[in-house]
Deep mutational scan, measured.
Amino acid sequence: TYTWNTKEEAKQAFKELLKEKRVPSNASWEQAMKMIINDPRYSALAKLSEKKQAFNAYKVQTE
Results as ranks from 00 to 15, higher is better:
26 N>F: 09
20 E>I: 04
31 Q>S: 09
42 Y>I: 01
25 S>C: 11
36 I>A: 02
4 W>Y: 13
41 R>H: 02
12 Q>Y: 10
6 T>F: 04
57 A>Q: 11
46 A>L: 07
2 Y>E: 14
61 Q>I: 09
53 Q>T: 08
21 K>G: 03
45 L>A: 02
23 V>C: 04
31 Q>L: 12
63 E>Q: 07
40 P>R: 07
36 I>E: 01
60 V>S: 12
46 A>V: 12
18 L>F: 04
42 Y>H: 02
24 P>H: 04
53 Q>N: 10
52 K>N: 03
49 S>P: 06
4 W>P: 10
60 V>A: 14
10 A>D: 03
39 D>A: 01
37 I>M: 13
63 E>T: 13
55 F>P: 01
42 Y>F: 09
45 L>V: 06
58 Y>W: 10
19 K>D: 09
28 S>T: 14
58 Y>I: 03
9 E>N: 08
31 Q>M: 09
28 S>V: 08
17 L>D: 00
49 S>Y: 07
31 Q>P: 00
21 K>D: 01
14 F>E: 00
24 P>C: 05
11 K>C: 15
34 K>Q: 12
52 K>Y: 07
33 M>G: 02
3 T>P: 15
63 E>I: 13
50 E>Y: 04
11 K>S: 13
28 S>W: 02
21 K>R: 11
15 K>G: 14
46 A>F: 06
62 T>N: 12
60 V>G: 08
45 L>P: 02
20 E>H: 05
43 S>N: 14
23 V>N: 02
12 Q>R: 09
54 A>W: 06
34 K>R: 12
43 S>F: 13
36 I>G: 01
38 N>G: 15
34 K>H: 11
51 K>F: 04
59 K>F: 04
1 T>H: 15
51 K>S: 02
4 W>V: 06
61 Q>N: 12
5 N>E: 15
46 A>M: 11
46 A>Y: 09
30 E>R: 11
11 K>D: 14
62 T>S: 11
14 F>A: 00
52 K>L: 12
45 L>S: 01
58 Y>G: 02
1 T>M: 13
18 L>N: 01
9 E>G: 05
41 R>M: 02
47 K>C: 13
53 Q>H: 10
14 F>Y: 02
60 V>L: 13
33 M>C: 11
29 W>Q: 00
11 K>W: 15
20 E>W: 04
8 E>T: 08
55 F>L: 10
33 M>I: 10
57 A>S: 10
11 K>Q: 15
46 A>K: 12
10 A>M: 07
53 Q>W: 07
7 K>H: 12
31 Q>W: 06
1 T>R: 09
7 K>L: 13
20 E>M: 05
16 E>C: 09
13 A>G: 04
8 E>C: 10
12 Q>F: 10
10 A>H: 04
41 R>P: 00
28 S>A: 07
36 I>M: 04
5 N>I: 12
46 A>H: 09
7 K>T: 10
47 K>W: 07
12 Q>I: 12
28 S>E: 05
31 Q>D: 12
60 V>K: 15
15 K>E: 15
19 K>C: 13
10 A>R: 14
44 A>E: 03
57 A>C: 13
43 S>Y: 13
39 D>M: 00
59 K>Y: 04
35 M>R: 05
54 A>K: 02
63 E>N: 13
57 A>P: 02
54 A>C: 10
19 K>I: 15
5 N>A: 15
52 K>I: 15
8 E>L: 07
31 Q>A: 09
1 T>L: 12
24 P>Y: 03
48 L>F: 06
35 M>W: 05
58 Y>K: 01
23 V>E: 01
26 N>I: 08
23 V>G: 02
60 V>Q: 14
5 N>T: 13
28 S>F: 04
56 N>G: 08
33 M>P: 00
28 S>Q: 06
16 E>H: 07
14 F>M: 02
23 V>P: 04
32 A>H: 00
37 I>P: 01
44 A>P: 01
61 Q>C: 11
40 P>M: 07
50 E>A: 06
21 K>H: 07
35 M>Y: 08
26 N>V: 07
15 K>W: 15
44 A>W: 03
10 A>S: 06
46 A>I: 09
22 R>F: 08
60 V>H: 13
50 E>I: 03
18 L>R: 01
6 T>E: 07
38 N>F: 09
48 L>K: 12
16 E>Y: 05
27 A>G: 05
15 K>R: 14
2 Y>S: 14
57 A>T: 12
12 Q>H: 12
9 E>Q: 07
53 Q>M: 13
5 N>D: 14
7 K>N: 07
50 E>N: 03
